[in-house]
């Protein structure tokens, strides 16, 4: 059943205390994580990555190479997990499906005229259906930021609900593109709209706009997930994407998820990192922990 927009439910106008958010976020970055838990955390980060390539110049070869990497992160080191998923354009889903075979690595496809979302609803729905038909397990849609900023919240809500319907069994991640939403209040409102419209995940950014996944924004979205969970008992996933390229920042994000939402979210079913270069940095940190030597990118696969 397609959900319908209910302004009374949605426009409760929760305002976000920006200074408070900054202070809370700063505190997450002061946690001391010692060697053993750090190694465990790093492996967890690897397992939560959506390895991503979203460029006009993507070729089948590039996607195949990335799919291979997704399953063989660094074969010199035993006991490494795979990443959670690969994230590609709809036209590359069939290539990824073939390259991944029976692997447990999922395929996420962006859709709805990614990254701008400036197209008609018919095209967005057929874009989504095409990706699902090609074998995508997850759909990363973008919201219509222009409509959102113009105050047409019902339009944004209905669009998300329609795409959710088109997804069928595929899980839906809703990209808010927070870099274009200007304020944390808007981020919170967009999160609430997406969650109520049926998002399985909410995601910060396309990776095409700066700033992307700042901790302040991610925290605001986590709070929206928490409030919804407290009210309804329904879990929604979170995916910060764009700008998380170091292990340190990734670990800070895990600390934040744990302290805001709790352990239940510390799995790739409910938390993901959208990133292209993060995996190599995490691998280098893991090798540093294992060998005691600072590493060089020369010895890791190109991403």
């Amino acid at each position: 059943m397609i959900k319908t927009f209910d302004p009374n439910n949605m426009l409760s106008k929760i305002t976000v205390d920006k200074v408070g958010v900054e202070e809370r976020v700063a505190r997450f970055q002061t946690r001391s994580i010692k060697n053993e838990s750090k190694l465990q955390g790093l492996k967890m980060v690897l397992n939560m990555i959506d390895l991503t390539t979203l460029e006009g110049k993507d070729t089948p070869g590039k996607v195949q190479q990335m799919c291979y990497k997704a399953q063989h992160l660094h074969d010199v080191q035993p006991d490494l997990p795979t990443v959670a998923a690969v994230c590609v354009y709809p036209s590359m889903v069939s290539v990824a499906r073939k390259a991944l075979g029976n692997s447990s690595v999922k395929i996420a496809s962006v859709s709805t005229a990614f990254p701008s979302g400036q197209s008609t609803r018919e095209i967005k729905i057929s874009d989504t259906k095409f990706a699902v038909d090609q074998g995508a397990d997850e759909i990363d849609m973008v919201i219509s930021r222009g409509k959102f900023l113009a105050g047409e919240y019902a339009f944004v809500f209905d669009e998300i609900a329609a795409i959710k319907e088109a997804c069928g069994k595929a899980r839906l991640k809703v990209i808010l593109e927070t870099g274009e939403l200007s304020t944390l209040d808007n981020v919170r409102l967009a999160s609430d709209i997406a969650i109520h419209a049926g998002a399985d995940f909410i995601k910060t950014s396309t990776g095409k706009i700066q700033p992307a996944a700042t901790m302040q924004v991610t925290y605001t979205m986590l709070m929206a997930i928490k409030d919804y969970y407290d009210k309804t008992g329904i879990m929604v996933g979170m995916k910060p994407a764009g700008g998380i390229s170091t292990s340190k920042l990734a670990l800070h994000n895990l600390v934040m998820v744990k302290e805001v939402l709790g352990n239940a979210w510390l799995t790739n079913e409910w938390f993901r990192f959208g990133a292209s270069s993060l995996a190599n940095d995490v691998l280098m940190q893991i090798m540093k922990s294992t060998t005691g030597l600072y590493q060089s990118s020369d010895y890791f696969s190109i991403d």
């Binding site: 005691g292 030597l293 600072y294 590493q295 060089s296 990118s297 020369d298 010895y299």
Partner: peptide, 8 residues
């Protein structure tokens, strides 16, 4: 020693 052992 830190410089000597650094892989990069």
């Amino acid at each position: 020693p830190a410089l000597a052992a650094h892989m990069d």
